[in-house]
Design a protein around this nucleic acid. Structure first.
Length: 491
RNA sequence: GUCCCCAUCGUCUAGCUCGGUCCAGGACACCGGCCUUUCACGUCGGCAACACCGGUUCAAAUCCGGUUGGGGACGCCA
């Protein structure tokens, strides 16, 4: 019976929507400034942003700071910084709920006047005790309605509660999950205004979404149960409903809700770890959303292709390895000049001396295929950046043998005479000296040269490295290695 | 405990709307071959899933019911 009514209601909503399409599209991201922007929040923001951009609508940023105790200005700044880094620009805001208290009062007045709200003087301690008792007896821990009909006026230590209908059902016609039915009897008389006069979240969001003309409320799954209460408030106010879309949660590897203990959850931590914003965007959008088999999306493509219909219903597990892979992909795709400037803070952090951006770009270019983060790339660049390289002792012992002294001497000599120091020329020189003159395999000398030049056994192709380093540096390092080998030879 | 949601490879997912084209496709990770001056990149190949039970049907990953499992919500937090 209830379902029949609910179904009918849904049908009504659908028809209604077709007749009066909600134009224009206005979405919002409404974080509470109680910490940094985390992965989950960023994805919610992203979906809202993409949806608005896709429809040529507006994206609003609103700071939900009604929690006086936990909200901080640093958090606001951290969130804005992260939004900016990810490239999600907003068309209006940021709005602060603290600055809108008068507005909430107006709406509260309407509810009070129409009898949809009432004052309540139950103390928090008392409520807590009653909730616990109800739980213990297996009853729903909802407000028991004690003050409902006491006709209390305003006063100190009194809150304002919403008078929830006793019967009937409320339908949430979710854009992602489909219709969801709630018995109103399950809902309770939620607090709209605290005893200190500050509105609660559930009331403030409704007022804000109404007054900001939000057409689509796209938010986390964890808000599903709040939605019927909010719908009831809209109805009590006689205001039209926005459309709701609840996106599934992001879980940690243990399938529990993502939290700090699952590792880095702060967006900005990824910046510090040398991730590119487009990697995070691309990774995040694919958690819950897909477009056939495609994995790589530019932001432009996302705006073009993003729809709520393609968002899945089930929660997804956060997988940092795939993000790493994507970052490697975008590093390969980046142009070296850009990379060089992005690299700058990481190079400085490692204490390398300053080098020309053009030089850094050429060095970075040789490492694009083998770096998954900017941090990794910066670390790999030590032999490009430092004058005195640190040589791995094991590698030196193994490869800088006395038997290599002769080939090295010849290489040095040939290099000294070299007119051009580009890759093809260098390759020709080595070909001549090693293969033709000495009848040796290039592979024989490659590792020793690599150790001489980079101090280690892992690096980009030798000719690439030499071309970047330049004649003077190459010769200096080759001679130094030669000296080491001659010394070894004597022992 | 009550309410709500979800359920395809280890993970992200395609397919489910319109049941046969799916002994289930792609990607990450993993394993192996090739390429090769190291490491990577690239490339080729491999491993690996429709949670379970029942129903509807000539036919079910796709529809229905139940079970189990997982998640979320039950605040004068958001």
């Amino acid at each position: 019976m209830c379902y029949a009514i609910a179904f009918f209601y849904c049908h009504f909503l659908l028809i209604n929507r077709r007749i009066a399409p909600m134009e224009p599209v206005i979405t919002r991201f409404a974080p509470s400034p109680t910490g940094y922007l985390h992965i989950g929040g960023a994805r919610t923001a992203l979906f809202n942003w993409l949806f608005a951009r896709h429809h040529g609508g507006a994206f609003v940023l609103r700071i939900e700071d009604t929690d006086q105790v936990r909200s901080t200005e640093e958090s606001v700044k951290a969130i804005l910084d992260a939004m900016e880094w990810l490239g999600m620009d907003w068309d209006a805001g940021p709005f602060y709920q603290r600055e809108r208290f008068d507005l909430y009062e107006d709406f509260l007045r309407r509810l009070l006047d129409s009898g949809h709200a009432y004052h309540c003087d139950c103390s928090p301690e008392d409520l807590d005790a009653r909730r616990k008792a109800a739980m213990a007896e297996g009853r729903k821990p909802k407000y028991d309605g004690r003050c409902r009909d006491r006709n209390l006026g305003p006063g100190a230590h009194r809150v304002v509660r919403f008078r929830c209908p006793d019967g009937g059902a409320t339908v949430l016609n979710d854009l992602i999950k489909g219709p969801i039915f709630f018995e109103n009897a399950e809902l309770d008389d939620l607090v709209l205004r605290r005893s200190d006069g500050i509105p609660t979240y559930n009331f403030a969001v409704v007022v804000d979404d109404i007054t900001m003309n939000i057409s689509h409320v796209i938010r986390g799954d964890d808000h599903v149960n709040n939605t019927p209460r909010q719908i009831l408030i809209y109805q009590a106010l006689g205001e039209p409903l926005p459309l709701f879309g609840h996106v599934p949660m992001i879980l940690g590897p243990d399938r529990a809700r993502m939290s700090k203990r699952h590792g880095a959850t702060s967006v900005m931590a990824y910046k510090e770890m040398g991730y590119l914003p487009q990697s995070l965007i691309n990774y995040l959008v694919r958690l819950g959303w897909s477009h056939g088999d495609q994995e790589i999306f530019s932001v432009g493509e996302l705006i073009e292709k993003f729809t709520l219909e393609a968002v899945g219903k089930s929660a997804s597990v956060y997988n940092p390895e795939k993000l790493l892979w994507l970052n490697g992909h975008y590093i390969k795709e980046s142009n070296p000049q850009e990379l060089a400037s992005l690299l700058q803070p990481f190079l400085e952090a490692l204490g390398y001396p300053h080098r020309e951006p053009e030089y850094v770009a050429r060095a970075a270019h040789t490492l694009q295929q083998r770096s998954k983060t900017l941090v990794e790339m910066a670390e790999s660049m030590s032999y490009y950046m430092l004058d005195e390289i640190a040589c791995d002792e094991g590698a030196a012992k193994k490869f800088l043998k006395g038997s290599m002294a002769d080939p090295f001497r010849r290489i040095v000599q040939a290099l000294e005479e070299a007119e051009h120091f580009d890759e093809p020329s260098l390759e020709k020189i080595f070909e001549r000296v090693i293969v033709t003159d000495l009848n040796m395999k290039f592979g024989k000398v490659a590792q020793p040269v690599r150790v001489a030049l980079t101090g280690g056994t892992v690096s980009p192709g030798l000719f690439e490295v030499m071309a970047v380093l330049g004649k003077a540096t190459v010769l200096k390092r080759m001679r130094k290695a030669l000296a080491y080998m001659e010394q070894e030879g004597e022992n």
